[in-house]
Design a protein around this nucleic acid. Structure first.
Lengths: 186, 186
DNA sequence: TTGAAAACTGGCCGATCGGTCAGGATAGTG
DNA sequence: CACTATCCTGACCGATCGGCCAGTTTTCAA
């Protein structure tokens, strides 16, 4: 039994499929990217994709996994802080995440209406809702909570169209916009 | 020749198809609504839909037509005002439009990435771009223009999920958020 | 009433989708 | 070398998509 190294071929192919699927989902969206597209981009057959992943949603889950973990860690860390500190922390860290994973935001926007059909992503939705409450600063004012949602919507929409803007520019833009909406000092 | 009344049957069926298509596009999106779905909802056959409309994109164009006209009139009116007045005018009137046509915003978000494939909607896109410049107050500051885009993205995202919020609540929310982002006095 | 134009439809087409399966290539091990 | 477990694939499946067409039903004016 070999336990020092994982099987090389399996991992190599899996990662290649994941990376190409991430690129395709990001540029065309989930529904518009067929298994055949992913297989061709990864240099294998469609059957191979389904050999490594148990259906198309499993490919999506694998692609979304790193961002899911990062968002959960962010929310978990913020929930152990006082409200004001959590608000500031969530704002800066969430913008970092949105910029880092901006290619995947197309996917999320695509599936926001149908995400509830995939129970494996329920946790991602609840983390997003929790984030809005933290960003609203723990207030009871429903308008402020809605404004936080508004801000997140604007941020997601802004991160969808890639290319023209650098990471730094996008970061500055989102930071300014969120602070204006939430009335936070820079 | 009868010119006082239009042929009743044709117009009646056409309008029924338009209305059902609008409802389906709004709730499920354009791609997820098949011609068969529209036909069933309208109480006719799929072939009838294609008898009245020259392909699925033509159905979309008909559904989007009222909002397209309204947006064009808004932009045209604003462009004949001084920058400050145009900004205030565009802000209030655009929120009115977004609330009125909120069901269709799902469609626009769905197709933003592929709208350029349909040349009949190029005018709609250019009107949207022109609106952001007007909302930015005619400034040269690129950050302010980007913030205006951010605001529109947030507004569109907010109008996507129907039901829970009343028109008045949605209107107040969008008005507050846009004025905060654009730093306009209420 | 009647005949032609308008409105409508069932059935079919080619393409594409996600997914399955039996079997071929390949690689690591005794 | 031979054997076996893993990796991989072509062929195929049922479903659904947008679209087309021949032919039937309805409408309405002469």
């Amino acid at each position: 039994m070999d336990m020092a190294t994982t099987t090389p071929a399996r991992e190599r192919t899996r990662r290649e499929i994941e990376q190409q699927a991430m690129a395709l989902f990001g540029s065309r969206g989930y529904d518009a990217s067929s298994l055949q597209d992913i297989a061709t981009a990864a240099g294998c057959s469609k059957a191979t994709v389904l050999y490594h992943f148990n259906g198309k949603p499993a490919v999506l889950a694998a692609v979304l996994e790193p961002s899911r973990i990062a968002l959960n860690e962010l929310v978990a860390a913020a929930e152990e802080m006082p409200a004001a500190a959590a608000q500031e922390f969530a704002l800066t860290r969430f913008i970092d995440l949105a910029v880092e994973f901006r290619g995947l935001i197309n996917v999320l926007q695509d599936l926001l209406g149908t995400l509830d059909q995939y129970p494996e992503f329920a946790q991602l939705i609840s983390a997003g809702l929790r984030l809005t409450e933290i960003l609203a600063g723990g207030t009871d004012d429903q308008l402020e909570i809605d404004l936080a949602k508004f801000a997140i919507n604007g941020l997601l929409g802004e991160c969808r169209h890639p290319g023209e803007r650098s990471d730094a520019e996008l970061h500055t833009l989102c930071d300014t916009a969120l602070r204006r909406i939430l009335r936070l000092n820079p």
